[in-house]
Nucleic acid binder design. Sequence first.
RNA 1: GCUCCCUUCGUCUAGAGGCCCAGGACAUAGCCCUCUCAAGGCUGUAACACGGGUUCGAAUCCCGUAGGGAGCGCCA
Length: 466
Amino acid sequence: MTVVTRFAPSPTGMLHLGGVRTALYSWLYARRMRGRFILRVEDTDRERSTEEAVRVILDGMAWLGLTPDEGPYFQTQRFDRYRAVIAQMLAAGQAYHCYCTKEELDAVRAEQTARKEKPRYPGTCRNGRAPRPGVQPVVRFRNPTDGAVVVQDLVHGTVSFQNAELDDLIIARSDGTPTYNFCVVVDDMDMGVTHVIRGDDHLNNTPRQMNMLLALGATLPTYAHVPMILGPDGAKLSKRHGAVSVLQYEEEGYLPDALLNYLVRLGWAHGDQEVFTREEMIAAFDIKDVNKAASAFNPEKLLWLNQQHMMRAEPATLVPHLRAQLRRIGLDSDDQALLEGIILAQRERAKTMKEMALNSRFFFVDHVQIDPKAAAKHLAGTGKETLVRVRAQLAALGEWTSGSIHAALEDLAATLGAGLGKVAQPVRVAVTGTAVSPPIDVTLALLGRGRTLARIDAALGAAAGT
RNA sequence: GCUCCCUUCGUCUAGAGGCCCAGGACAUAGCCCUCUCAAGGCUGUAACACGGGUUCGAAUCCCGUAGGGAGCGCCA
């Protein structure tokens, strides 16, 4: 049997890490089982659904490379189908009209709560009731009253619910529109979903959905309820941390594979392995190995993983990411060799592509701004003299490579009877404007002789005035 | 309140009765490497929520307790 999974977000809020992880698990499982992955947008709540949220879902999934095999489907386009199923259930007596008003039900609920009972629909209209003038009825599902529903959950194991605990839920509002729990059931049935992988906040909805599926004569899917993701402080994911649009992570310079890697390890493990390629994730993932407990989002580890992926990636594949980040700060270059060289030189000193772009500004600007503190420390006194000699050495160099540059600087250091640091720091400050950069030979090689000498001259000129 | 779920280092986790006086990773501290910053290497600090059972033996099984979460909507 072909495995069919689905990701069914509702566009009422931003697609955040919690949603992305459920999507990832569903996608991974489908890939692993050589099945199909469906994307379905649950937009039946027309009041709260926004186009912006739909866009984030679509763009986010595309950015992450979680490509659906089917969809996106939109529930708002399936209303006819839902209406037909409701009519069918009404005819079969599996559902009935309820003429209770909201006010009446609120009153009942208030009483029940006061008596410390579980608030539930009392079943007033369950056995037939004459239409009441002025009241547009809702449609309720006739839930079994005895017995139990047993969920064989892939992550939680056996969970059973007494039907007596369940009441008759509304499947169609008085305006005729279907409700969430009902649409899910019809969609999963129609789309042949075999594995429902979703947040464990839905575990309590599962028995009702199973009862409806049973009433419709559908085959029950296998369920897997994955735990939620908490903020770094262990509290519920909030706007402050993590509950931002996934696209935010793109802006901040995270690699899709790194984010996915981080997310897959949050709640799942494969021995001691921390870094996974997409292929490794697919090969190793099994929904049965997912943990039951919620886990806290840890930004530091995401940062670490992102750098791990940057360091392991083929430099050429990072070029588009670097350029995108450079453009954000008003810089750009189409010099492939230079960009790859920068990536090689910078990736072990930047945790995100954004940080890499920021640290690489000096490669692209015309004039570097020299940090006064760095100048005071490395360009004053002997630093200035050293710089003059470095300039002469470099100007006289035959070929301009990191190897030849390195040799020249070491020679000079030896002549001066000093360490390489004494020579490298003044050059570094003159050329990059700061006391921090990749190895000086690599930096100069990438920068080119012309710009190197020009910057040394500029620094010397500025230092002469002090 | 009722029903359901969850509980190993600060954090993510390994662990499916003896291999565990609990392993790995992030973070953190120290050391090494070193032209800066990193990256890397080594070392350290740090956890089985609690209480009862079962067993020769429990992080692992059972029962409670405590704490956390979810659901109980004409929201999804």
